[in-house]
Design a protein around this nucleic acid. Structure first.
Ligand SMILES: [Zn+2]
Ligand SMILES: [Zn+2]
Ligand SMILES: [Zn+2]
Ligand SMILES: [Zn+2]
Lengths: 150, 150
DNA sequence: ACATTGACGTTATATTGTATCAATCTTGTT
DNA sequence: AACAAGATTGATACAATATAACGTCAATGT
């Protein structure tokens, strides 16, 4: 993933939506874009301090994450309480409901687009239960290709 | 759900597996069986104290929950950090991978069995990504039937 | 009887997240 | 420039969730 390109896209996106990608927000996004794995809010605060030689309160990190999540630039993994940059920032296609394959061995996450017909079937099955889905973010745990062979 | 029946089944199940459903573990399970909503570990500790007029350390609650989860009697909702009794303790059929419909308004949870062909398709789509699923517990958030009408 | 194991208590600590109020920076308007 | 209004961030405190480390006791099997 090209960090610079993603940042450009993010800035453009924020401009369109009339919100501001401040320097600190941008730094937090950069940190996540450059991270191989999802990071906790406090880990992000540490990385921020390492990268910018400037302390940042955890509270602020949470607020910036909240902003980035609202803009669809970052996702939160509820099952691990960690955050990661959206893999599709630079894509042109509209962002579907995200599905994550989380490797429990090496922590890498693959944000995939599950077949939309499959999601539709899933939603159908759910509406058969008279339930109204808000946003079906799926977090699936297992082993990635590399970790299966070991 | 018939609590007594579920407890009987749980005891039988533990006997079969050569593990012990101690009185405290049983009480924790009872508390969850009688709860309308998922409960956090600390909430369970409070309920335990109310019900049995005896304090119990949160640490112990976590250990008992761990045991009950291992035995498939209790599930943990990763997205809310709460615990609930399995809805299928009294069922004879084998327990499939659990899928939860979580109402974000009233907190009730419906543990459904999603169509197995759908799960198979999901697993296929995932293995196409060279990923090996461990246990695809799905937690889906939205509104239950009652809360949709309000 | 003895060693081993499991269950539970106790205490401390780590991790994750929120509430509140103050300070500062932008922005638009006068 | 001066000001008001709002957004952003800092600072502090605290709540909620979870784990680590170590001790006690009872059950179990030899
Ligand atoms: Zn995404
Ligand atoms: Zn892996
Ligand atoms: Zn279940
Ligand atoms: Zn509801």
């Amino acid at each position: 993933m090209d960090t610079e390109k993603a940042i450009d896209k993010a800035e453009h996106n924020c401009l369109e939506h009339g919100v501001k990608l401040t320097p600190k927000r941008k730094s937090v996004l950069e940190i996540l874009l450059e991270s191989k794995h999802p990071q906790s809010a406090y880990e992000i605060a540490d990385l921020y301090q390492q990268k910018l030689a400037e302390k940042i309160p955890a509270m602020s990190v949470y607020r910036m994450l909240e902003f980035l999540i609202e803009q669809g630039l970052v996702h939160k993994l509820a099952s691990t309480n960690k955050f990661l940059a959206c893999s599709h920032i630079t894509c042109t296609h509209s962002h579907k409901t995200p599905q994550f394959l989380i490797c429990d061995n090496c922590q890498t996450v693959n944000e995939i687009g599950i077949d939309s017909s499959l999601i539709a079937a899933l939603e159908q099955s759910i509406s058969d239960n008279h339930f109204k889905l808000s946003s079906p973010q799926l977090e699936l745990h297992g082993l990635c290709e590399a970790c299966q062979t070991n």
